[in-house]
């Protein structure tokens, strides 16, 4: 069975470490990968694609050395493999123009402003991963424990979830 990944991108190792620790509860269900630049993120995405797996969500900083986060998200929106991937900005420094770009051209799913709280990140990741499942049509039930119950239940009701 193919795996569904979460990818965190930030050029500050300390920040990455904190985020990964906060996303610990997801590890049993979704492997969490990290990258410290847009290029490294692309390499990780290519590896995921090659192994036949999926990228459910990217949690991305904006201001980074080299290419910025919003441009990475836009390029992901233009690629079939990462079209359904939920795109979340986690940043304190994205200006209005970059943010507008992210919404209009990368279909930004959510914006988390720094400083963030652990509860907020977990809630957003849960909700967004649930949306990924609903968009991409993966079977939700094996992951029911880690997805957002209301979003999931609404979708199973509207989508006429079947018995087995």
């Amino acid at each position: 069975m193919s795996k569904i990944y979460i990818l965190c991108v930030d050029d500050e190792p300390d920040v990455l470490e904190v985020i990964v620790r906060e996303l610990e509860i997801f590890e049993d269900y979704f492997p969490v990968e990290t990258a410290s630049s847009a290029d490294e993120a692309r390499a990780v995405i290519r590896d995921i694609e090659k192994s036949g797996d999926h990228l459910g969500l990217i949690l991305c900083d904006h201001v980074m050395i080299g290419e910025n986060g919003v441009d990475l998200l836009i390029s992901m929106q233009n690629s079939d493999f990462t079209l359904d991937t939920r795109k979340v900005l986690l940043t304190g420094q994205a200006g209005l123009e970059a943010t507008v770009d992210a919404v209009n051209r990368a279909s930004l799913s959510h914006y988390i402003a720094k400083p963030w709280s652990k509860d907020e990140v977990i809630k957003v990741v849960k909700e967004q991963m649930t949306h990924f499942f609903l968009r991409s049509g993966h079977d939700t039930l094996p992951y029911a424990m880690i997805l957002d119950p209301m979003t999931l239940a609404k979708a199973l009701h509207d989508g006429l979830g079947g018995d087995r």
């Binding site: 209301m150 999931l152 239940a153 609404k154 979708a155 199973l156 009701h157 006429l160 979830g161 079947g162």
Partner: peptide, 16 residues
């Protein structure tokens, strides 16, 4: 209805 869809509907009603 399917047991699944019924449960899902009930949960959306009751959980909040």
């Amino acid at each position: 209805m399917s047991n699944t869809a019924t449960t899902a509907m009930m949960i959306t009603v009751v959980l909040p």
